[in-house]
């Protein structure tokens, strides 16, 4: 029955072709919007972490795959009126239930300006409280900076962990410390270089080495 079988194949193939065509169309329409959403989300996070900066440039750092602990995803230079105003670092550390993505803003004085938890897989109702203001906007975090690494009270520092979620809290602290390290590694190149060459973005490979 080759005729019958041909019909089977043709109908299936036709349906696939029409579907493919429709989807290509839908994709064409939605893709720019989807990309835009993602970019907007990143911009909002950056602005939240370093208020006062009106522009952000991504810095060249060692790619994630080449890092030892693969935690620093990106470093951004924040610019205000053409002058560097600080650094925002995007890190991802291991939490209780999965990866915790953080963005940490550091002002030009070397102080932590803003912390945002981008994504996490912590336990709802417990570890998920690390995204809350009560935890992130505490005094100990406000005082943290390049010269003062935060640590949980359980680990000898001043940071109050979320009750019942020590591991999640510790992950956030680790992320902030990692971000501070990364910022410190590029600090000179951003602030000193730009005093000399304000328009150029820096060559950071030497600075990045110290992260290992």
């Amino acid at each position: 029955m080759p005729r019958e079988q041909l019909r089977l194949v043709v109908v299936l193939a036709l349906i696939c072709a029409v579907s493919g065509g429709i989807l290509a169309l839908v994709n064409r329409v939605t893709e720019p919007r989807i990309k835009e959403q993602a970019e907007q989300a990143v911009k909002r996070s950056l602005a939240f972490c370093l208020p006062g900066a009106d522009e952000f440039q991504e810095e060249h750092v060692i790619p994630v795959s080449q890092q030892a602990d693969k935690e620093v995803l990106a470093v951004f230079r924040g610019i205000s009126d053409g002058v560097p105003a600080g650094v925002v670092v995007n890190v991802e550390v291991r939490g209780y239930g999965g990866e915790v993505g953080l963005m940490v803003g550091i002002t030009e004085e070397g102080r932590v300006a803003g912390i945002k938890v981008l994504n996490h897989a912590e336990t709802p109702g417990l570890g998920s409280k690390i995204t809350g203001e009560k935890f992130l906007e505490q005094q100990a975090f406000r005082e943290a900076g390049l010269d003062y690494s935060p640590a949980l009270t359980q680990d000898g520092g001043d940071v109050q962990a979320v009750a019942g979620a020590t591991i999640s809290s510790r992950a956030v602290v680790r992320g902030i410390n990692r971000a501070l390290e990364a910022a410190g590694a590029v600090w000179e190149t951003i602030f000193i270089d730009s005093a000399r060459r304000p328009e150029e973005s820096s060559q950071l490979d030497e600075g990045g080495d110290r992260e290992q």
Partner: peptide, 11 residues
């Protein structure tokens, strides 16, 4: 279609 539209509209 639903997937793409939701990603664009209600991310």
């Amino acid at each position: 279609i639903v997937d793409k539209v939701m990603a664009a509209g209600v991310p």
